[in-house]
Write a protein that binds this DNA or RNA. Structure first.
Lengths: 183, 183
DNA sequence: CCTTGCCTATATAGGACCGACATATAACGG
DNA sequence: CCGTTATATGTCGGTCCTATATAGGCAAGG
């Protein structure tokens, strides 16, 4: 899914500024399966406005820079629903951690342990964020479905890490070993 | 993790052509958490050769275009192990399917049912591919660790889909509804 | 028999997207 | 008083992907 459709999906539920769209894509309901940066959001919004799919108004604020608040138009709603009818693009899952884990036998066990612990903590935090989202009464039924799917996955990821992380540590090098000691 | 490091990780375990690197990144042991396309692999290999981290030799074939086989150098092995010591980049998970699911209430139930079934089938296939990989005797211990982590996740994803997909279908519009009927 | 499509294989052009930076100001803490 | 954080918009360089070009082999089908 492109940034264009992501912006429309957020604006479908209410008006927002580019800044807020970024924040929602990183912290909001859909933050664990979509994301976008300023470098793609602002150009996308400009293009969407050109195409008449969103409109904007300037809200001056004293001191702070003026907010440029975007709203979706009727044409925008149509475009978004049409986009949802399109065949779905493939899921993307990129994990530098798992690439690291595949080569644990080349690395000192202290480094492996440290990265595993970091990864476990991140997983726990992600699960917690999803549980918090579920408890907010603002989530709709379909949002709740998506979030509980994510929670189920984070729960097993955590479980699996806890019970198997020590196996990976025992595969790592017991000596601290220097970086340049590629065998 | 960038394409550069991905290429080094594959060449670490044996020589390969750009074409094979692409195939391994899409079908190999790490295919479910890394991926790269020709458009990034070929420039990356050229750069790696410039930097002396890989070497290449041309193998002529009758009829087919000559194979350009890349091998990792000692400097390349060092660079790769050094890269594994670097702080890990964030995991990326992009799911057009979950964005679709969040808006199930705007869509005809037949479409929702169809997409859910597609998604379930994809999940089953991914799980099966991982199980097949685990049964190959060529997988090392760390590979097995990574693959069984993936299998555990695919298993709950499948489970959750099976037991909850009908809830999402009941949220969808019972009437077929036209694309332009954005409420 | 010939066309169509798929497989191997290398490579590039154009576009999508991200990370980092530039700019501006107000609030808060040390 | 100065650094950091938060709000807010936007650009630039570089990375990476999608789609395409080229090119011959093989297999199936009309």
């Amino acid at each position: 899914m492109n940034v264009r459709t992501l912006c429309l999906s957020i604006l479908y539920e209410g008006e927002a500024t580019g800044y807020e769209i970024r924040r929602l894509s990183v912290e909001g309901e859909s933050s664990y399966f979509v994301e976008a940066s300023y470098g793609s959001i602002y150009p996308a919004l400009a293009k969407l406005e050109d195409d008449g799919l969103v409109s904007s108004r300037i809200e001056p604020q004293d001191g702070k820079p003026a907010r440029k608040v975007y709203s979706i138009t009727d044409a925008g709603r149509e475009e978004f629903v049409a986009a949802l009818h399109e065949p779905l693009a493939e899921e993307v899952f990129r994990s530098p951690f798992l690439l690291f884990a595949r080569f644990a036998h080349l690395l000192p066990c202290e480094l492996v342990r440290s990265r595993l612990e970091d990864q476990l903590n991140k997983t726990i935090e992600k699960k917690k964020r999803l549980i918090d989202l579920l408890e907010e009464r603002t989530t709709s039924a379909s949002d709740a479905w998506v979030i509980s799917y994510g929670r189920a996955i984070m729960a097993v990821a955590e479980q699996h890490m806890r019970t198997h992380m020590h196996e990976l540590i025992t595969l790592a090098r017991s000596e601290p070993a220097k970086k340049d000691a590629a065998e």
